[in-house]
Amino acid sequence: MKKNNLVLLSLAVLFLNGCAFLHQFQMSSIDSEAVMTGKKFEIIVSETGVNLQEAADTAKLFTQSQQTRKEMQQINDIISMFQMGPRTGNMVFNEKYADSIMRAIQLECPSRKISGLTSIRETAKYPVVSGEIVRITGYCQKGS
């Protein structure tokens, strides 16, 4: 029983943490004074991503019927024809989720003296769903 609990706990920790995949990262030019004397800020925006193939595979686990499994795969194949195109991470249903970053940067740094910006596009992967994340870190120098 204790062993089972340990396994469950380990699995829970793994699933709760999720695996992080880095897709893209860019750096802007760096004003060393602003970086070393300024205040570091970090903005993270995220949207739920869905992997329909994994959803279908998971759904198949709940049925014993081969016919139902086959139908589920057929439906998934049909839907995937409507979702063609290059992907980074899983698909999301709102492409504008990252657009709030520009305003968030202004709120973090009202002086608008910003340098050393790093832009990161990453995915926190869980079973079936994922967090499609845009993370911006930068340094804000106080206004004169």
Binding site: E47, L52, S115, S119
Partner: peptide, 21 residues
Amino acid sequence: FSVLSACAHSVHLYQATDQNG
């Protein structure tokens, strides 16, 4: 599934650059 798959997108990249004040 169709409802779930409606209007699917993928965000590849988001980049922000410096400001001088």
